[in-house]
Design a protein around this nucleic acid. Structure first.
Lengths: 250, 250
DNA sequence: CGCCTAGTTGACCAGGTTCAACAACGGTGG
DNA sequence: CCACCGTTGTTGAACCTGGTCAACTAGGCG
């Protein structure tokens, strides 16, 4: 069946993500393979999870990019994280019940939904799964810390460079890069709201980095020309992503 | 025995913290009461947990304030969080093994240490404990997000005000405030490194807020004069602390 | 009394914001 | 096939928040 193959491929993305950060035992793997997942698609800008609403389902990204964000009283938006294929954006809702922010599709996406009830049953039967999910959410917190440091102490250009580094490494870990290029369909407005910078400043920084020959980003395509240079300009240390050696990029 | 009473009081602080965010069942409570904790004290500035070193113990704050921080190549410091009594600053090490940042005492502190082995045993026997700790670490992540938003999108004065709000509410939740005042022995340098601002700017903002009659902070004593005014100036919404109703402050 | 740390204030400067206009691109409908 | 329009990206100029440098004050402690 075509449908089954599609689902197999999609789950493979999730499994690859989990593999990239931890060793998944055969029993946990089997249990996760059996988890019932309903596929859905999202239009750009559409909310998946809305603040203050307790969700009954978790979602996993199959294709596209999602972002978590918070709106301030004055209407400005702060993007808190991007979620690439394989990520589970709302693990928080499992443990906390309430969301204090929202998650939306940055571009057209396909996602999978599984019920809290199912995953809780899985967790009870397989403590290994609980550990694994805990690990994933700790890594997410580590990402927030790195982001915070970048925001607080790095000048605009380095800050932009750091985000590009992170996204490239994360996309690479789930097999979505070819050589030193990948699809990265975010707008400069996404960047601005994520980095706490103005759109204008993002544009200038991006151009400055291009002129330095570090990378090019246009029409949703990222091509990295000088990875060591980019890394050092950004002060990027991938340790906080907690990828296993074989998945990380020197 | 004097020693035993001391220990009882100290554990009470941890339990109060846990109570403030979740309902702790009688069996979990008992299990936690039995956990072996070694007490230690820290001089101001002393590291408890150092980056890149896999620790074998977790620590819990009894008295004083700790901070997590990261050092950048250029020598500047970004403080990622403050930890008040009752907090467990390095839950991350339990699930992740490696620390990607350090934790140090902001002032003279007393802390408790318990071994990873002990707590892991506890987790295995009592799934409720695992859930509880997971919840605590999710709340910590939520705090990071709020911090990030503040850093990215709030002007300096509001940003300072927001931190004061958070610290006051958290100290209140563990019973360390009396009325609208509390001890808050952080230096302006701590504030600056936490907020990503310069020391000078923190000083000016603090003075501006004092002149507006919102609060006073001097010699380690915080007195809040106008809580509603402070809250609205900061755009502070305590939801992200995920305190249970009875512990939160309107 | 003297030193050290923490806090305060002024003057100047720069990184980043805001405002505004325009260019490039893709999709839509006539 | 082309004209039109909305979105995204680009650039210049004026402005302003917050950073840097520097000097000085106020406590705390040996």
């Amino acid at each position: 069946m075509v449908g089954r193959n599609y689902m197999r491929d999609r789950k493979a993305r999730l499994m690859r993500r989990l593999d990239s950060v931890t060793e998944v035992g055969p029993r946990e793997r089997e249990a996760l393979e059996d988890l019932a997942i309903r596929v859905g698609s999202l239009a750009p800008g559409q909310d998946v999870i809305r603040a203050y609403q307790p969700p009954q389902e978790c979602c996993v990204v199959f294709e596209g990019i999602l972002h978590r964000y918070q709106l301030l009283p004055d209407g400005s938006r702060q993007i808190l994280a991007f979620h690439v294929p394989g990520d589970i954006p709302d693990l928080q809702s499992l443990g906390l019940g309430v969301m204090d922010h929202s998650v939306a599709a940055s571009v057209a996406c396909t996602v999978g939904y599984f019920s809290h009830a199912d995953i809780n049953r899985l967790i009870e039967r397989h403590p290994g799964v609980a550990k694994l999910l805990w690990r994933v959410s700790l890594i997410e917190a580590a990402g927030l810390r790195a982001w915070l440091t970048s925001m607080g102490r790095r000048p605009a250009v380095a800050h932009v460079a750091h985000l590009v580094c992170e996204l490239f490494v994360r996309l690479r870990a789930v097999g979505l890069t070819t050589g030193m290029r990948c699809s990265l369909p975010l707008t400069q407005t996404h960047f601005a709201d994520a980095l706490g910078l103005s759109l204008v400043q993002v544009n200038r920084s991006l151009n400055a980095l291009r002129r330095k020959g570090l990378f090019e980003l246009s029409r949703g395509q990222l091509v990295i020309h000088d990875w060591p240079g980019l890394k050092s300009m950004a002060g990027f240390d991938p340790a906080y992503l907690h990828l296993r050696k074989e998945w990380s990029l020197g």
